[in-house]
Nucleic acid binder design. Structure first.
Lengths: 123, 123
DNA sequence: CCATATACCTCTTGCGACAAGGTATGCATG
DNA sequence: CATGCATACCTTGTCGCAAGAGGTATATGG
């Protein structure tokens, strides 16, 4: 292979990505929370159907904060430190976009799944 | 790094994967189709919202066939060869499971997104 | 003769998501 | 007081899906 042009290419934003991010932002939009709590809150909000582990939540929290979507403050509770995260205005806007996108995608898939059932009396 | 135990671990079945597979099976369940046609059919069935490229479709088709979910037959049309794929009984069962799973997941997410809006006057 | 559409396919890469592991504190129990 | 469990934070390494880019070949139209 010509290793001449080994520099760039493109991203791979599979149309199904970013769901954990969506759930995190949406859950935090109901009120300030800390990571450990968030993990359980998401589990609860989805009827135990979806478990976003700590290995997903913490990195996402940091990334979202450095992107200005979240704001954090440290709080000492019972001698233990908790880092509370709150959604910023920018985060709210971003969340709205994610929700719209999610709905668009799932509508489309729902349509493909249910829509125009198979021909005639089936085959 | 300790390269001592580089043998196994576990899969990474992110709860959001397998959507292309679902769309492929579902679309084929409306009737026999060939790869090139499938790509466009999925695009059409989702109102142009979702485009599953050939780089996704063909490998998936081969994998599904070798898993017994699809059956293929070659057909010569206008001097060009087409490989038509049809869903097997096993494929239908699998599809049904995928659809159930998809609905379960999206219901859960829909619930998390819409359910229990944010507290009081917000914060 | 060349471009375009059809039709098949593979290779490599990129990123998201994950499990597993690592630190540290408070609290209960024996 | 030691052991264990729950809380709370975090990072590292791995894996697999999905995607893009490329590669072959034939028919058709200019």
């Amino acid at each position: 292979m010509p290793l001449a042009e080994m520099h760039a290419s493109m991203a791979n934003p599979s149309f199904m990505n970013g769901v954990p991010e969506l759930l995190i932002l949406r859950t935090l939009s109901t009120g300030e929370m800390y990571g450990y709590e968030l993990v359980q809150a998401i589990r609860a909000r989805t009827n135990q159907a979806i478990k976003v582990g700590e290995g997903v939540v913490y990195p996402a929290l940091h990334a979202l904060e450095s992107d200005g979507m979240l704001r954090s403050r440290r709080k000492l509770v019972n001698g233990r430190t908790r880092v509370y995260y709150a959604v910023t205005r920018k985060g709210e806007k971003h969340l709205a976009g994610l929700v719209r996108h999610w709905q668009h995608i799932t509508d489309a898939i729902g349509l493909a799944i249910g829509g125009t059932a198979h021909a005639a009396t089936a085959l």
